[in-house]
Nucleic acid binder design. Structure first.
Lengths: 335, 335
DNA sequence: AACGTTGACTACAACGTTGTAGAAACCAGG
DNA sequence: CCTGGTTTCTACAACGTTGTAGTCAACGTT
């Protein structure tokens, strides 16, 4: 049985608005009236109807987080932090999976703005700036790569610098034939491009030169893709002594493929990943990685969104940068 | 700029209700009228206000999925399937993380029923039957262990039989000192208790007897807990030749601890898990596991919920069982 | 020609809430 | 005892949508 303000009001012998005032903590209510109302609320187990409240207020208190896939650990971990950060501001988070498919991402970016959410935190893979025009002004914050200087707020990490740093780390171990796994030619591959840039610039800085045969593409960034790419590298005969994988799941797949090929990590081949997921602390061997500060990313994103929702919607888009840390582990121990 | 039915109606020169009829696909609208309205909708980029629609209809089209933690891969994978199954029925899924904390789970079970969701799919860890009484009749489906025959619909797998089957598998490999990791004494440990029962009954069936020193508790079921429990077993000197971990993340932690102790898997110690998560296909060694049919679980849960929402809310609670499969992999290869 | 049926549309009320405006009671200061 | 301000409360309208009831014209049947 569902009750409304009206039922509570009748039971407490006051007007509907007075009950509303009590519910909303309005100060000018006599203590005994407040007590009577609260008693009635408790007796009826009254809960406000959020649809009605939302309609009236024009706010829903719900923000959406759109990620490619929840069972990619990086996004699951990120989601947890976003939910936590949003809860601190009294928001509920609706998590949306786009599959990284452009069409679905466009639906999320434009269609989901059905007054069901106040704002959107969006980690796009396939989206381009064009897709972001039709937004009805629903506040949005993008995570990850810049989409051609789109009109939205942005939280990024410096992918190029991070990729350069971890590649340099491999160089510092004395590795000379450093492969890369995860390149992508599609427009979806914005992260891939930046990380490849960083990899390349580190190699050139070290005087090692860039060898295209050492770069293996990966259609998606799952474990299976990493394993397949690693196998391809091995059978091609290029004999790398290190591999930089553009994310950790790729790296876990690569570890697996190296194990199957009878190669030892890090003795024969050093392996490094990117994302700092929890799995990497427990894999055999543990995985060297770039760990972005996910908590900070989440908090910055939520704060940017809050500013948009409550503040000036026409202010110029801001871009904030979150820190990362290189975490050396067993997979790149010196020999 | 947001537009309403009224704006569209004025532009198309019809009544508000006619626009509503077009939007909702009502058949008795003249083709030319429909065309005019649709043109106006497109020009104004009109989107219905879901809060208003929900208020009017008493439905929101949103269901919630409450799980302990999204970055436990099992729940992330489950979430994906639930989202997919729900989308097939036109529902949006709001994912809620309870942290497995009883208080938070109670909030979800009772409080979230704020008319924002039409129903709830709930995978509780800590909840008891008492907590489920105060529900206002919001439809709910429980996943996993039965909560003392609570009043809600339920999708389960046969934990006892599954645990017995995988333990018997270990016995069949000739293992005689089979340890277990993941026992819990708290009321939260319903799954733990059932899996322990299955383990125990398999041992007795095989005439091996139950040795309490071979059972290691784990406060939570994360990788770190599995690693710690494994280390505890090893230092206690009980020398197991196999371990059944009550979930896969525990098992991955155990693999890690065994590796650090210089023991080989499966040669020295065979390891089995439970949940069938993707990681287990790529770990070194790959992980033998019980893989519940998550897609089926998700579909059954969504269907049960749909029946509650659209059908008889007072019908007696139903309990459906989903199948599972034993998936033998490297971690229990015969020696 | 009168009749019922159907199609195409509209006016109105209602969903449950909260903002606005204002009434009534109370208080302090002159 | 009046004035002006505050406290406490209420009536009403509005948020944007859809269900209900109804109007009116066109049509086919007798």
């Amino acid at each position: 049985m569902r009750h409304r303000l009206k039922d509570v009001a009748e039971r407490a012998g006051v007007s509907v608005k007075t009950v509303s005032n009590v519910v909303n903590g309005y100060v000018h209510v006599r203590p005994d009236t407040r007590a009577r109302v609260e008693e009635a609320i408790a007796e009826l187990n009254y809960r406000p109807n959020l649809s009605a409240r939302n309609l009236r207020k024009g706010r829903t208190g719900v923000i959406a987080l759109a990620v490619p896939e929840l069972d990619i650990p990086y996004f699951a971990e990120l989601a947890r932090h976003v939910v936590t950060a949003a809860a601190a501001l009294g928001w509920t988070v609706l998590i949306d999976q786009t599959g990284g498919v452009r069409e679905q991402e466009r639906v999320v970016a434009s269609g989901i703005t059905d007054h069901l959410i106040d704002g959107l935190i969006f980690s796009p893979l396939a989206l381009t700036a064009d897709d972001l025009t039709n937004l009805d002004g629903t506040p949005m914050v993008l995570l990850g790569e810049r989409v051609d200087h789109g009109p939205a707020d942005h939280v990024v990490i410096d992918n190029v610098a991070a990729a350069r740093e971890i590649t340099t780390h491999l160089v510092g171990l004395g590795r000379r034939r450093i492969a890369a796994i995860g390149s992508q030619r599609t427009p979806e591959g914005a992260s891939a491009r930046l990380r490849l840039d960083g990899y390349r610039s580190a190699l050139e800085e070290a005087g090692l030169g860039y060898d295209e045969t050492l770069v293996a593409p990966a259609p998606a960034w799952h474990r299976a893709d990493g394993a397949a790419a690693m196998r391809a590298l091995l059978t091609s005969g290029v004999r790398p002594d290190a591999v930089f994988c553009f994310n950790d799941t790729l790296a876990l797949g690569a570890l697996r493929a190296l194990h199957e090929a009878g190669l030892r990590v890090p003795d024969d081949v050093a392996v490094a990943g990117f994302d700092g997921i929890e799995d990497g602390r427990f894999s055999v061997p543990t995985l060297t990685t770039i760990a972005p500060d996910k908590e900070r990313i989440a908090r910055l994103a939520v704060e940017l969104l809050a500013n948009r929702i409550d503040g000036d919607r026409t202010a110029p888009a801001r871009e904030l940068s979150a820190p990362y840390r290189l975490e050396p582990r067993e997979s790149t121990k010196g020999r």
